[in-house]
Amino acid sequence: MKKRGVSIAVKMVALLLVIFVFEGMLIGYNVIHGDVLEYMQTNERNIFHERVVNRKNYLEEKMRVRWADIEDSTTKINNMTQKLVDEGTISLDSLDKSSESSMPLLKEASDVLISLVRSNGVTGAFLVLNTENLEEKKQEGLYEDKPGLYLHDYDPASRAWERNQDLLWSYAPAEFIRQQEFSTDEGWKTKFNFSQCGDYLPYLYEPYKAAKNTENVKERDILDFGYWGYTGINDCAQKEAIMYSVPLVLEDGTVYGVLGIDLMSEYVKKLLPYLELIDDNKDGSYFIGIQKGDESTAENVLLSGNTYMSAFSQGGETVFSKKRRTNLYR
Protein backbone atom coordinates (compact mmCIF):
# COMPACT_ATOMS: atom_id res chain seq x y z
CA MET A 1 0.00 0.00 0.00
CA LYS A 2 2.84 2.35 0.82
CA LYS A 3 4.55 1.83 -2.54
CA ARG A 4 1.28 2.35 -4.37
CA GLY A 5 0.68 5.66 -2.54
CA VAL A 6 4.13 7.00 -3.43
CA SER A 7 3.66 5.97 -7.04
CA ILE A 8 0.37 7.86 -7.34
CA ALA A 9 1.89 11.01 -5.73
CA VAL A 10 4.83 10.92 -8.11
CA LYS A 11 2.52 10.54 -11.07
CA MET A 12 0.40 13.49 -9.92
CA VAL A 13 3.47 15.70 -9.48
CA ALA A 14 4.77 14.63 -12.86
CA LEU A 15 1.41 15.43 -14.47
CA LEU A 16 1.37 18.88 -12.86
CA LEU A 17 4.90 19.54 -14.08
CA VAL A 18 3.89 18.56 -17.62
CA ILE A 19 0.91 20.94 -17.41
CA PHE A 20 3.09 23.78 -16.10
CA VAL A 21 5.68 23.23 -18.82
CA PHE A 22 2.96 23.14 -21.47
CA GLU A 23 1.38 26.33 -20.17
CA GLY A 24 4.80 27.98 -20.03
CA MET A 25 5.49 26.99 -23.63
CA LEU A 26 2.06 28.26 -24.66
CA ILE A 27 2.59 31.61 -22.93
CA GLY A 28 6.07 31.89 -24.41
CA TYR A 29 4.72 31.13 -27.87
CA ASN A 30 2.03 33.81 -27.49
CA VAL A 31 4.55 36.35 -26.24
CA ILE A 32 6.93 35.72 -29.12
CA HIS A 33 4.48 35.11 -31.94
CA GLY A 34 1.42 36.92 -30.63
CA ASP A 35 3.01 40.43 -30.53
CA VAL A 36 2.63 40.59 -26.74
CA LEU A 37 6.20 41.83 -26.30
CA GLU A 38 5.72 44.46 -28.97
CA TYR A 39 2.45 45.52 -27.36
CA MET A 40 4.10 45.84 -23.94
CA GLN A 41 7.00 47.83 -25.37
CA THR A 42 4.65 50.10 -27.30
CA ASN A 43 2.58 50.66 -24.18
CA GLU A 44 5.70 51.59 -22.19
CA ARG A 45 6.79 54.01 -24.91
CA ASN A 46 3.35 55.62 -24.99
CA ILE A 47 3.34 56.11 -21.21
CA PHE A 48 6.84 57.58 -21.38
CA HIS A 49 5.86 59.89 -24.25
CA GLU A 50 2.73 61.05 -22.41
CA ARG A 51 4.74 61.97 -19.32
CA VAL A 52 7.22 63.98 -21.39
CA VAL A 53 4.44 65.78 -23.30
CA ASN A 54 2.60 66.62 -20.06
CA ARG A 55 5.77 68.09 -18.57
CA LYS A 56 6.48 70.03 -21.79
CA ASN A 57 2.95 71.45 -21.82
CA TYR A 58 3.29 72.42 -18.17
CA LEU A 59 6.49 74.39 -18.85
CA GLU A 60 5.11 76.03 -22.00
CA GLU A 61 2.03 77.14 -20.09
CA LYS A 62 4.20 78.67 -17.37
CA MET A 63 6.35 80.40 -19.98
CA ARG A 64 3.46 81.96 -21.89
CA VAL A 65 0.93 82.70 -19.16
CA ARG A 66 3.10 83.69 -16.20
CA TRP A 67 6.86 84.02 -16.71
CA ALA A 68 6.68 86.04 -19.95
CA ASP A 69 3.71 88.16 -18.87
CA ILE A 70 5.62 91.47 -18.83
CA GLU A 71 3.50 93.63 -21.11
CA ASP A 72 1.95 95.62 -18.24
CA SER A 73 5.38 96.20 -16.69
CA THR A 74 6.68 97.40 -20.05
CA THR A 75 3.80 99.86 -20.37
CA LYS A 76 4.42 101.22 -16.84
CA ILE A 77 8.12 101.85 -17.52
CA ASN A 78 7.38 103.42 -20.92
CA ASN A 79 4.88 105.80 -19.28
CA MET A 80 7.38 106.67 -16.53
CA THR A 81 10.10 107.38 -19.09
CA GLN A 82 7.84 109.48 -21.30
CA LYS A 83 6.77 111.57 -18.30
CA LEU A 84 10.36 112.16 -17.18
CA VAL A 85 11.39 113.11 -20.73
CA ASP A 86 8.47 115.51 -21.11
CA GLU A 87 9.33 117.13 -17.77
CA GLY A 88 12.98 117.49 -18.77
CA THR A 89 14.10 115.37 -15.81
CA ILE A 90 15.99 112.98 -18.11
CA SER A 91 17.34 113.34 -21.64
CA LEU A 92 17.43 110.60 -24.25
CA ASP A 93 20.77 112.01 -25.46
CA SER A 94 22.46 111.13 -22.18
CA LEU A 95 20.17 108.42 -20.76
CA ASP A 96 22.59 105.54 -21.37
CA LYS A 97 25.81 107.50 -20.91
CA SER A 98 26.02 107.35 -17.12
CA SER A 99 24.20 106.13 -14.03
CA GLU A 100 23.73 109.73 -12.91
CA SER A 101 21.82 110.59 -16.09
CA SER A 102 19.52 107.60 -15.71
CA MET A 103 19.08 107.69 -11.92
CA PRO A 104 15.60 109.32 -11.87
CA LEU A 105 14.26 106.59 -14.15
CA LEU A 106 16.04 103.76 -12.34
CA LYS A 107 14.59 104.85 -9.00
CA GLU A 108 11.04 104.87 -10.32
CA ALA A 109 11.42 101.67 -12.33
CA SER A 110 12.83 99.67 -9.39
CA ASP A 111 9.36 99.10 -7.92
CA VAL A 112 8.21 97.67 -11.25
CA LEU A 113 11.08 95.16 -11.23
CA ILE A 114 10.34 94.13 -7.64
CA SER A 115 6.67 93.61 -8.49
CA LEU A 116 7.60 91.72 -11.67
CA VAL A 117 9.82 89.26 -9.81
CA ARG A 118 7.19 88.60 -7.19
CA SER A 119 4.09 88.37 -9.40
CA ASN A 120 5.65 86.32 -12.21
CA GLY A 121 7.46 83.83 -10.00
CA VAL A 122 10.78 84.29 -11.81
CA THR A 123 14.33 84.27 -10.47
CA GLY A 124 15.26 87.65 -11.90
CA ALA A 125 14.11 90.83 -13.66
CA PHE A 126 16.29 93.34 -15.47
CA LEU A 127 16.20 96.74 -17.17
CA VAL A 128 18.99 97.78 -19.55
CA LEU A 129 19.08 101.30 -21.01
CA ASN A 130 20.48 102.01 -24.47
CA THR A 131 19.75 104.62 -27.16
CA GLU A 132 22.64 103.88 -29.53
CA ASN A 133 22.71 101.79 -32.69
CA LEU A 134 24.12 98.51 -31.41
CA GLU A 135 24.63 97.07 -34.90
CA GLU A 136 26.98 99.92 -35.80
CA LYS A 137 28.78 99.57 -32.47
CA LYS A 138 29.35 95.86 -33.07
CA GLN A 139 30.67 96.49 -36.56
CA GLU A 140 33.12 99.01 -35.12
CA GLY A 141 34.08 96.60 -32.36
CA LEU A 142 32.96 99.05 -29.68
CA TYR A 143 31.26 97.56 -26.65
CA GLU A 144 30.20 99.98 -23.95
CA ASP A 145 28.85 99.37 -20.46
CA LYS A 146 25.17 100.26 -20.02
CA PRO A 147 23.27 101.53 -16.98
CA GLY A 148 20.35 99.59 -15.64
CA LEU A 149 19.02 97.34 -12.90
CA TYR A 150 19.09 93.58 -12.35
CA LEU A 151 17.21 92.06 -9.41
CA HIS A 152 17.45 88.39 -8.40
CA ASP A 153 15.23 86.21 -6.24
CA TYR A 154 16.79 82.88 -5.28
CA ASP A 155 13.59 81.39 -3.91
CA PRO A 156 10.61 82.41 -6.07
CA ALA A 157 8.47 79.64 -4.58
CA SER A 158 8.46 81.20 -1.10
CA ARG A 159 5.73 83.54 0.13
CA ALA A 160 6.10 87.22 -0.80
CA TRP A 161 6.51 88.50 2.77
CA GLU A 162 9.36 86.02 3.32
CA ARG A 163 11.12 86.85 0.07
CA ASN A 164 12.54 90.28 0.88
CA GLN A 165 15.66 88.61 2.26
CA ASP A 166 16.05 86.71 -1.02
CA LEU A 167 15.91 89.81 -3.24
CA LEU A 168 19.39 90.94 -4.24
CA TRP A 169 20.61 93.56 -6.72
CA SER A 170 23.10 92.10 -9.20
CA TYR A 171 23.45 95.27 -11.28
CA ALA A 172 22.65 98.73 -9.93
CA PRO A 173 24.49 102.05 -9.41
CA ALA A 174 26.18 102.57 -6.04
CA GLU A 175 24.07 105.66 -5.29
CA PHE A 176 20.93 103.63 -5.99
CA ILE A 177 22.03 100.81 -3.65
CA ARG A 178 22.60 103.23 -0.77
CA GLN A 179 18.91 104.16 -0.91
CA GLN A 180 17.56 100.61 -1.15
CA GLU A 181 16.45 98.12 1.51
CA PHE A 182 17.76 95.11 -0.44
CA SER A 183 21.37 93.96 -0.37
CA THR A 184 23.69 93.38 -3.32
CA ASP A 185 24.35 89.99 -4.84
CA GLU A 186 27.75 88.34 -4.92
CA GLY A 187 29.67 89.87 -7.80
CA TRP A 188 27.47 93.00 -7.82
CA LYS A 189 28.32 95.53 -10.55
CA THR A 190 27.28 99.14 -11.03
CA LYS A 191 26.64 98.70 -14.79
CA PHE A 192 26.06 95.93 -17.32
CA ASN A 193 29.69 95.24 -18.21
CA PHE A 194 29.49 94.54 -21.95
CA SER A 195 32.94 96.05 -22.48
CA GLN A 196 34.49 93.32 -20.32
CA CYS A 197 33.02 90.41 -22.32
CA GLY A 198 33.40 92.13 -25.69
CA ASP A 199 29.82 91.64 -26.81
CA TYR A 200 26.27 92.88 -26.39
CA LEU A 201 24.52 89.80 -25.10
CA PRO A 202 21.46 88.53 -27.01
CA TYR A 203 18.92 89.52 -24.33
CA LEU A 204 19.77 93.17 -25.14
CA TYR A 205 20.96 92.97 -28.73
CA GLU A 206 18.27 90.82 -30.37
CA PRO A 207 15.01 92.52 -29.21
CA TYR A 208 16.60 95.98 -29.44
CA LYS A 209 17.80 95.39 -33.02
CA ALA A 210 14.45 93.92 -34.09
CA ALA A 211 12.52 96.96 -32.83
CA LYS A 212 15.11 99.46 -34.10
CA ASN A 213 14.93 98.05 -37.63
CA THR A 214 11.11 98.04 -37.77
CA GLU A 215 9.23 100.95 -39.32
CA ASN A 216 6.27 102.29 -37.34
CA VAL A 217 7.30 100.12 -34.44
CA LYS A 218 4.59 101.57 -32.15
CA GLU A 219 1.93 100.09 -34.45
CA ARG A 220 3.23 96.61 -33.69
CA ASP A 221 2.52 94.52 -30.63
CA ILE A 222 5.65 94.80 -28.50
CA LEU A 223 5.46 91.07 -27.81
CA ASP A 224 6.23 90.48 -31.50
CA PHE A 225 9.80 91.41 -30.59
CA GLY A 226 10.00 89.17 -27.52
CA TYR A 227 13.23 87.17 -27.39
CA TRP A 228 13.81 83.86 -25.58
CA GLY A 229 17.44 82.92 -25.12
CA TYR A 230 20.02 81.39 -22.83
CA THR A 231 23.08 82.80 -21.08
CA GLY A 232 25.77 80.60 -19.64
CA ILE A 233 28.45 81.56 -17.14
CA ASN A 234 30.92 83.97 -18.76
CA ASP A 235 32.48 87.40 -18.26
CA CYS A 236 29.05 89.03 -18.56
CA ALA A 237 26.97 86.50 -16.66
CA GLN A 238 27.67 84.85 -13.32
CA LYS A 239 24.81 82.36 -13.52
CA GLU A 240 23.27 80.08 -16.13
CA ALA A 241 19.75 81.20 -16.97
CA ILE A 242 16.98 81.12 -19.55
CA MET A 243 16.05 84.69 -20.41
CA TYR A 244 13.13 86.55 -22.01
CA SER A 245 13.23 90.24 -22.98
CA VAL A 246 11.28 92.83 -24.96
CA PRO A 247 12.27 96.31 -26.22
CA LEU A 248 11.21 99.53 -24.52
CA VAL A 249 9.71 102.02 -26.98
CA LEU A 250 8.44 105.58 -26.48
CA GLU A 251 5.43 107.19 -28.18
CA ASP A 252 7.55 108.60 -31.03
CA GLY A 253 9.07 105.17 -31.75
CA THR A 254 12.36 105.77 -29.92
CA VAL A 255 13.82 102.48 -28.70
CA TYR A 256 15.69 103.13 -25.45
CA GLY A 257 16.38 99.74 -23.85
CA VAL A 258 14.95 96.37 -22.90
CA LEU A 259 13.00 94.86 -20.02
CA GLY A 260 13.26 91.16 -19.24
CA ILE A 261 13.14 88.24 -16.83
CA ASP A 262 15.36 85.26 -16.15
CA LEU A 263 14.89 81.69 -14.94
CA MET A 264 18.07 80.32 -13.44
CA SER A 265 18.93 76.81 -14.57
CA GLU A 266 18.97 75.36 -11.07
CA TYR A 267 15.40 76.58 -10.51
CA VAL A 268 14.15 75.17 -13.84
CA LYS A 269 15.72 71.79 -13.05
CA LYS A 270 13.52 71.58 -9.95
CA LEU A 271 10.52 71.81 -12.27
CA LEU A 272 11.81 68.81 -14.28
CA PRO A 273 11.66 65.84 -11.87
CA TYR A 274 13.37 63.18 -13.98
CA LEU A 275 12.44 60.38 -11.55
CA GLU A 276 8.87 60.55 -12.89
CA LEU A 277 9.95 59.42 -16.35
CA ILE A 278 10.61 55.72 -15.82
CA ASP A 279 8.98 53.61 -13.10
CA ASP A 280 11.45 52.09 -10.62
CA ASN A 281 14.33 53.49 -12.64
CA LYS A 282 16.55 56.50 -11.97
CA ASP A 283 18.12 56.56 -15.43
CA GLY A 284 15.76 59.11 -17.03
CA SER A 285 16.71 62.70 -17.93
CA TYR A 286 14.96 65.84 -19.12
CA PHE A 287 16.77 67.89 -21.74
CA ILE A 288 16.05 71.47 -22.81
CA GLY A 289 17.63 72.86 -25.94
CA ILE A 290 17.23 75.65 -28.48
CA GLN A 291 16.18 74.19 -31.81
CA LYS A 292 18.23 75.25 -34.81
CA GLY A 293 17.07 75.58 -38.43
CA ASP A 294 17.48 71.82 -38.77
CA GLU A 295 14.91 70.36 -36.38
CA SER A 296 17.21 67.44 -35.60
CA THR A 297 19.82 69.75 -34.01
CA ALA A 298 19.49 71.64 -30.73
CA GLU A 299 21.84 73.88 -28.78
CA ASN A 300 22.29 72.46 -25.28
CA VAL A 301 20.70 74.56 -22.53
CA LEU A 302 20.20 72.41 -19.44
CA LEU A 303 19.88 68.81 -18.30
CA SER A 304 17.93 67.38 -15.38
CA GLY A 305 19.05 63.82 -14.58
CA ASN A 306 22.19 61.72 -14.94
CA THR A 307 21.59 59.56 -18.01
CA TYR A 308 22.86 62.03 -20.59
CA MET A 309 25.37 63.78 -18.32
CA SER A 310 28.52 62.25 -19.82
CA ALA A 311 27.55 63.33 -23.34
CA PHE A 312 26.08 66.71 -22.38
CA SER A 313 28.28 69.77 -22.81
CA GLN A 314 27.12 73.29 -21.95
CA GLY A 315 26.91 75.42 -25.09
CA GLY A 316 27.41 72.39 -27.31
CA GLU A 317 24.89 70.83 -29.66
CA THR A 318 22.89 67.62 -29.67
CA VAL A 319 21.79 65.85 -32.85
CA PHE A 320 18.67 63.68 -32.68
CA SER A 321 17.52 60.92 -35.00
CA LYS A 322 13.90 59.81 -34.83
CA LYS A 323 13.11 56.13 -34.46
CA ARG A 324 10.84 54.80 -37.17
CA ARG A 325 7.09 54.84 -36.40
CA THR A 326 7.57 56.20 -32.87
CA ASN A 327 7.64 59.50 -31.00
CA LEU A 328 11.08 58.69 -29.63
CA TYR A 329 14.47 60.17 -30.57
CA ARG A 330 17.99 59.07 -29.82
Results as ranks from 00 to 15, higher is better:
residue 68 A to W: 06
residue 128 V to F: 02
residue 268 V to I: 15
residue 2 K to D: 09
residue 146 K to V: 10
residue 219 E to L: 01
residue 138 K to A: 05
residue 287 F to P: 08
residue 50 E to V: 01
residue 52 V to H: 05
residue 217 V to S: 03
residue 258 V to C: 03
residue 126 F to C: 00
residue 161 W to F: 09
residue 264 M to I: 12
residue 202 P to N: 04
residue 210 A to V: 08
residue 301 V to S: 07
residue 110 S to M: 04
residue 139 Q to N: 09
residue 176 F to L: 08
residue 146 K to N: 11
residue 209 K to T: 14
residue 154 Y to W: 07
residue 146 K to Y: 04
residue 60 E to K: 04
residue 143 Y to F: 15
residue 271 L to P: 09
residue 225 F to D: 04
residue 162 E to Q: 06
residue 67 W to Q: 00
residue 120 N to R: 12
residue 119 S to K: 09
residue 317 E to V: 08
residue 127 L to H: 08
residue 273 P to T: 06
residue 114 I to R: 14
residue 233 I to R: 11
residue 112 V to A: 04
residue 14 A to C: 11
residue 102 S to Y: 04
residue 270 K to R: 15
residue 91 S to R: 13
residue 180 Q to S: 15
residue 32 I to Q: 15
residue 271 L to F: 06
residue 211 A to D: 12
residue 214 T to M: 08
residue 324 R to N: 10
residue 324 R to T: 13
residue 152 H to Y: 12
residue 145 D to P: 09
residue 31 V to K: 09
residue 262 D to W: 09
residue 179 Q to E: 15
residue 119 S to Y: 04
residue 31 V to I: 09
residue 306 N to Q: 14
residue 119 S to A: 10
residue 284 G to K: 10
residue 195 S to M: 02
residue 107 K to I: 14
residue 125 A to Y: 02
residue 145 D to S: 12
residue 189 K to M: 07
residue 112 V to S: 04
residue 250 L to H: 05
residue 162 E to L: 02
residue 231 T to S: 07
residue 152 H to M: 11
residue 256 Y to D: 01
residue 93 D to S: 15
residue 46 N to P: 00
residue 141 G to D: 05
residue 44 E to F: 08
residue 188 W to A: 12
residue 218 K to T: 14
residue 102 S to I: 03
residue 58 Y to W: 13
residue 195 S to Y: 05
residue 129 L to S: 05
residue 125 A to W: 03
residue 329 Y to P: 09
residue 185 D to H: 11
residue 329 Y to A: 02
residue 31 V to N: 12
residue 117 V to C: 13
residue 281 N to R: 07
residue 106 L to C: 12
residue 77 I to F: 00
residue 181 E to V: 12
residue 122 V to P: 01
residue 59 L to I: 15
residue 84 L to I: 10
residue 222 I to L: 11
residue 251 E to D: 12
residue 205 Y to S: 03
residue 262 D to I: 05
residue 298 A to E: 07
residue 20 F to A: 13
residue 200 Y to F: 05
residue 142 L to C: 00
residue 134 L to W: 02
residue 61 E to K: 02
residue 144 E to G: 01
residue 74 T to M: 00
residue 201 L to Q: 11
residue 19 I to E: 13
residue 233 I to D: 01
residue 81 T to M: 05
residue 21 V to D: 09
residue 4 R to Y: 06
residue 241 A to W: 00
residue 72 D to T: 06
residue 229 G to R: 01
residue 80 M to Q: 11
residue 224 D to W: 01
residue 228 W to P: 08
residue 167 L to S: 10
residue 49 H to V: 06
residue 217 V to I: 13
residue 270 K to Q: 15
residue 59 L to Q: 13
residue 141 G to C: 01
residue 47 I to N: 05
residue 34 G to K: 11
residue 32 I to L: 14
residue 4 R to K: 10
residue 177 I to N: 03
residue 93 D to Y: 14
residue 116 L to T: 15
residue 72 D to M: 00
residue 211 A to G: 08
